[in-house]
Amino acid sequence: MTSHYRSAFAPGLLHGRVIVVTGGGSGIGRCTAHELASLGAHVVLIGRNLAKLQDTAGEIVADGGRASFHACDIRHEDTVRTVVTAIVGAHGRIDGLVNNAGGQYITPLENISAKGWQAVIDTNLTGGFLMARECYVQSMQERGGSIVNIVADMWGSMPGMGHSGAARAGMVNFTETAALEWARSGVRVNAVAPGYIASSGMDHYPPEAGDMLRAMRKTVPAGRFGNEAETSAAIAFLLSPAAAFISGTVLRVDGARPQARMGWPMELPDAQAQQRPAVRPYDGFHLAQTPRVFQDK
């Protein structure tokens, strides 16, 4: 393990950029913030847990990067507007937004209450819309920018998480619509759809879900879970100048899982095949933490 983030991209790629990362205190958001900072960006961490934001910002600064943070519940319109105003006031602009904050719980559709449904929709769809709208209106409309919305592998269905699937599908359509409407301002809007990623978010699922979570890799043609750094690399690419002609699309980071089909035998790669250069896991995040469900298993 190295003492600094090992990005696949050129040093200084995002030098001077101001990039907001929601849900930046843990999981994919934390990893992404580290990578963007390692590439020269000033990352602004957004989240509800102030202690986690402080810890992540401290890690980034200790590594020589630049970071600041704001406590914010993205579901509340006035709060989002105030926080974005503060960011623009402090930095003069917002160049990028990673709409990563989200969450859901496992339950069948018939057991989801209206309150539970609305809470997931507000977190995974409405909150992302509010953040994107305010970043656009308060900065990007005049200066341009790039937005990356984090969705999920919800193609076909999302059993056990129907509320999240509906919200993520809505965010994909929002991504496509915003890419069209905001192109006139020099704003690109894309999405990244992580599949089964070994992230700290899995620690929020109940212990009884452990066996199911551990078995999920067998449904992935790549034969394994992805990691946070592999997701962050996709986000960094879409924020970078190399993606200047990419907008309105979804980049899936899922090991071909949605392509699995009944009736076609799943031939998982063996350990030797999984170490071949084209598919070997990319371990760029020096502070990555293995989810508890996979520890000692």
Score class of each variant (00 low, 15 high):
173 N>R: 12
55 D>P: 01
24 G>Y: 11
232 S>R: 08
114 A>Y: 14
242 A>G: 15
288 A>W: 02
268 L>M: 08
204 H>Y: 12
1 M>S: 14
65 G>T: 08
169 A>R: 10
149 N>F: 06
31 C>F: 04
159 P>Q: 07
35 E>M: 12
202 M>I: 05
198 A>Q: 01
60 I>Q: 12
44 V>A: 09
131 M>A: 12
59 E>F: 14
11 P>D: 02
122 D>L: 07
163 H>I: 04
38 S>K: 13
15 H>M: 13
252 R>E: 04
167 A>D: 00
177 T>P: 06
191 A>Q: 09
81 R>N: 09
263 G>R: 06
219 T>H: 14
106 I>W: 05
60 I>V: 13
186 G>V: 06
289 Q>H: 07
36 L>S: 04
274 Q>K: 14
74 I>T: 14
246 I>N: 08
271 A>E: 11
139 S>Q: 02
138 Q>A: 12
93 R>E: 00
22 T>E: 03
143 R>H: 13
93 R>Y: 04
183 A>L: 04
115 K>P: 05
52 K>C: 10
5 Y>K: 05
4 H>P: 00
49 N>M: 00
45 L>Y: 05
231 T>V: 13
34 H>L: 05
283 D>W: 05
19 I>W: 01
285 F>M: 03
236 A>S: 15
132 A>V: 11
289 Q>K: 13
263 G>T: 06
165 G>H: 10
104 Q>I: 06
44 V>I: 13
218 K>N: 14
255 G>I: 02
263 G>K: 09
96 G>Q: 07
271 A>C: 06
